[in-house]
Structures are given as C-alpha cells and as structure tokens.
C-alpha cells in the first residue's frame, strides 16, 4: 500500500486549544498514568504476599514524599479518568452531544475531579490523624 503522497491533516498545534480538546488529550494521558499506576497495585499486593518486611518497605516508599507525589498524581488521574469516562459513556448512549452540553459537562468533570482529589486527600490525612 502506497502512503507516500497522501494529503496530511494539519497537526495538533495548528488548532486553537479548547476545553473539549484539552480534556480529550487529558483523558488519554491520565489513562496512561493509570495503566502504569496499576503496576503499583501489583507491587503493593505482591510485597504484602511476600511478608511483613516487604510490605513495610513498600508502605514506607508509598508514604514517603516521592510515593505521595506519585499517589497524588495517580489519584487525580483516577478521578479525572473516572468522571470523564462516565461523560464518554453518556455520549455513547447519545446523551449530551450538543456543543453547549459538551463544554458544560467538560467544566463539570474538571471541577468534580479536582474536588474529589482534594476531598479524598483531606479525608486520608484526617483519618490518619496527621493533620
């Protein structure tokens, strides 16, 4: 198949950034973060299965500044991907496809993801009694 002389569509940076395109890119980006973050779950579970010492080591890493930074990123990615994923599922059944609705639900998703991230971390610090 010859693909040499086909016209190319303009590249991403040609277009004006919009809330719709930004969230679309962020959905894919957070998906990659979460796919890698899922490997942390394997690390956590296998070290727990290995024994208390390995579990303590894994927990110390997660509770350290780098671990917390990673977990913060993963948790924001989770809440964003979750909320925006639900937005995608509504589109799949044909709901909310008007441009006004798409933009509105986009801002709603961004707000919900930020609120959930801040809320869950506040709850975690309060429950752990470290605040």
């Amino acid at each position: 198949m010859s693909t040499g002389n086909r016209p190319l569509s303009p590249h991403l940076q040609i277009y004006k950034p919009e809330v719709t395109s930004a969230l679309s890119i962020l959905h894919r980006l957070t998906g990659v973060v979460l796919a890698l973050g899922a490997l942390l779950l394997t690390y956590w579970l296998t070290s727990a299965a290995y024994g208390p010492e390995a579990f303590a080591k894994a927990h110390d890493f997660m509770a350290g500044w780098l671990g917390r930074l990673i977990l913060f990123g993963v948790s924001f990615s989770l809440f964003f991907h979750l909320c925006n994923g639900v937005r995608h599922l509504f589109w799949d059944i044909g709901w909310g496809l008007e441009l006004r609705q798409v933009k509105g639900s986009g801002y709603l998703v961004a707000l919900a993801a930020l609120s959930l991230t801040v809320g869950v971390w506040s709850a975690a610090y309060m429950l752990a009694g470290r605040m």
Binding site: A56, M62, A63, L78, L82, G85, L89, V120, L127, A128
Partner: peptide
C-alpha cells in the same frame, strides 16, 4: 469501564480506612 465505576468507588473508600499501613 462500566464495571470499574463501582469497583473504584469501593476501592478508594476501602484504602481510606487503611492509610496507617
């Protein structure tokens, strides 16, 4: 994706009770 919505709500709530390590 549909299955992961309730599963993750449960998981986040559970992890919150286990933060002491």
């Amino acid at each position: 994706a549909v299955a992961l919505v309730p599963l993750f709500l449960w998981f986040v709530a559970s992890v919150l009770t286990l933060t002491t390590g």
